[in-house]
Each structure stands twice: as structure tokens, then as C-alpha cells.
């Protein structure tokens, strides 16, 4: 068990190093950092001095090591475009993205999992089929189109809900939250729905297919042959086994939420990290791009570690260190 976790930790460190290397390569070799920082009129000698003071003339390995240690200590450098410290930029944008992500993930899980179970257990039923067709259309509509449709209906035609920005927020320390005002919730609703719908359909389809597979296993047949009641077969025996693969995918979906938050934030002008990243791409603001990249990978790795721990909770084969 401990060995399992420590091996996963090692793998995570590897992934993080690889992503840091990509970020470093981006930062160091895509365009000239010095040329980006100084104006046209700076002399070559001055540029060379800056280059030296930034350590850009050190051996590449030394540069990489100091790049990584800077990242670890939270020293993310400055944006080419705004000249602000990147850490500040990210910190001010992070709460918006996290709150949006959490709400949409909750929407996706709270509706997706029960709907998946229902369609798996009522295969061929009218309601189940309707849900299925709906989800097929659901995964086929690009996030931004969903957003536009929602804006068109609730913002333009009905005028019920705000269609851009975070609305009224409450500031607690450095964290600005939508959760404490009515206007905040109203502003959050459309973006969260937009982001949640795609994940919801994915969750539902996954839970459904895994549950269907489990329902066909011998141990479920045996449980039925022993006369175990239907409720227990579905929710104790089958659901537990369904959860093992589903947890993995939910972990991955968190990544999907982050990725598509870029799109959602763009549609609703939601001032989060995604919008920041999009600007950095549009203006080739390499330092911001590379830091965003590393942070996203870190989030992923942490979530995957949590998923592994959950595995151990659910599956005794992992817990007791059995060789499958």
C-alpha cells in the first residue's frame, strides 16, 4: 500500500519534471526573453548585461535547475505584456476559475452519476433512451455553442440572467467569492451550466457503460442466484465495482473542466485563469503560458494522487497489496 503510493508519487514527480522541461524550453527558446523585456533602443552591451544577470549565459542544466527551484519557491517571474509578477496575476484570477470549476463539476457528478445508473439499469426503457439521445447531442455540442445558446435564450430573449463577468463578489482576504451574494450566484449560473453540461454527459455515459459491464459479471449473477434483493445488488454490489473505473475518469474530467474553462471564460468574459492564458497566447506572453502550463499539470498530478488514494479505500486488492 505504502509502496503503491510512493511509486505513484515518483511517477508524479517525473510528470512534473517533464512538464517543467517543456515549460522551460518554451520560456528559454521560443523567442528571445531579453528582447521581449527591453525596448528596441537598448544597446547590445546592455542586453548582454541583462542576459548575464538573468543567468541566461549559464550552462543549460544550471538554468533548468534554477527555473525549477524558482517554480517551487513560487517565484514565477514577470509577464512580458503587463510587467506584473505572474504570481500576483494568477492569484487574483484563481478563485474565479476554481469556483466555476467546482460548481460545474458538482453539476456534472450530481446529475451525471444517478442518470448513468438509471440508464444502465433501465436499458431500452423510454426514459433511458430519451436520456441517451439527449446526451449524444450533449457531447456533440461544442461548449462555446452551448454558452451562446444559453446567452441567447436567458440573456437576450428572456433577459433573466447576466451574461458576462462575475457580478457582485465578496472579498475574503485575497479570495474573491461569488458564493456569498445573490448576484454572484446569478452570474455563476450560466457559465457553470455551460461548463457542466459536457462533463455531465461524459460522466453519465461512462457510468452507464461501466455499470452495464459490471451487471454482466458472474458475481452479480451469483448474487442474483442467491436471492440478494435488487436494491442491494444494484447499489451495494454493482455500484461499488462501477466506482473503481469511474473515479479515474472523474479525475481526468477535472482536467477537462480546467481546459474547457478557457472556452467558457472566453464566452462569458469570466475573469479567470483561462482568460489570462488565452490572452498570453494571443500576445505571445511566454512566461505566463509556461507558468499556467506547470500549474495545470500540478493540479492534474495532485488530483491523480487523490484518485489513487481513493482506489485504496474502495479496492481491497490495492489496500492489502495483492498481485492481481
Amino acid at each position: 500500500m505504502l509502496a503503491f503510493i510512493s511509486r505513484r508519487l515518483l511517477q508524479s514527480v517525473f510528470v512534473m519534471l517533464a512538464v517543467s522541461l517543456i515549460a522551460f524550453t518554451l520560456f528559454r527558446f521560443v523567442g528571445d526573453p531579453v528582447a521581449q523585456m527591453v525596448g528596441q533602443e537598448t544597446s547590445v552591451a546592455d542586453q548582454e548585461r541583462i542576459r548575464d544577470s538573468l543567468g541566461l549565459n549559464d550552462p543549460i542544466t544550471t538554468q533548468f535547475v534554477s527555473f525549477v527551484s524558482d517554480l517551487i519557491t513560487g517565484n514565477f517571474g514577470f509577464s512580458y505584456r503587463t510587467r506584473q509578477p505572474i504570481s500576483e496575476m494568477i492569484l487574483s484570477r484563481m478563485p474565479a476559475t476554481i469556483e466555476l470549476g467546482i460548481v460545474s463539476l458538482l453539476i456534472s457528478l450530481l446529475i451525471g452519476v444517478p442518470a448513468g445508473i438509471y440508464t444502465a439499469l433501465h436499458r431500452g426503457g423510454a426514459i433511458a433512451n430519451t436520456i441517451l439521445v439527449t446526451t449524444l447531442i450533449g457531447i456533440s455540442i461544442p461548449t462555446f455553442v452551448i454558452g451562446i445558446f444559453l446567452i441567447f435564450i436567458f440573456g437576450v430573449q428572456l433577459g433573466w440572467l447576466p451574461t458576462f463577468g462575475r457580478g457582485d463578489v465578496v472579498t475574503i482576504g485575497w479570495w474573491q467569492t461569488n458564493f456569498l451574494t445573490i448576484d454572484g450566484w446569478r452570474s455563476l449560473l450560466l457559465p457553470a451550466l455551460t461548463l457542466g453540461v459536457y462533463q455531465l454527459t461524459l460522466t453519465m455515459r461512462l457510468v452507464r457503460s461501466e455499470m452495464q459491464d459490471v451487471m454482466k459479471t458472474d458475481f452479480i449473477k451469483f448474487a442474483r442466484a442467491r436471492g440478494i434483493n435488487r436494491h442491494s445488488i444494484h447499489y451495494n454490489h454493482a455500484l461499488r465495482n462501477t466506482m473503481v473505473p469511474v473515479i479515474t475518469i472523474i479525475g481526468l474530467q477535472f482536467g477537462g473542466v480546467i481546459a474547457f474553462s478557457i472556452v467558457t471564460e472566453s464566452v462569458f468574459q469570466w475573469p479567470g485563469m483561462g482568460l489570462l492564458f488565452l490572452d498570453s497566447i494571443r500576445y505571445v506572453d511566454i512566461p505566463v503560458m509556461s507558468v499556467y502550463l506547470v500549474l495545470i499539470a500540478l493540479m492534474f498530478v495532485v488530483i491523480n494522487l487523490i484518485v489513487d488514494l481513493l482506489y485504496a479505500v474502495i479496492d481491497p486488492r490495492v489496500r492489502t497489496g495483492a498481485t492481481h
Partner: peptide
């Protein structure tokens, strides 16, 4: 009636027990 009057033994003991529940869970429940 199933379980109470008729029961069944399957071919492959590797797959006919629920891997995530202990033996006692499965027996006591039944």
C-alpha cells in the same frame, strides 16, 4: 424463492465472488 429454495454454483471461483466485499459481508448479507 431464489436463494431460499434454489441456489447455484458457478464455474469460475475467480469471477463469482464480489472482489470488493469481504467474505463475511457476502455471507452475512445472504
Amino acid at each position: 424463492l431464489r436463494g431460499r429454495r434454489i441456489s447455484m454454483i458457478f464455474q469460475d471461483p475467480q469471477t463469482s465472488l464480489n472482489p470488493l466485499l469481504s467474505i463475511s459481508d457476502q455471507l452475512v448479507e445472504t
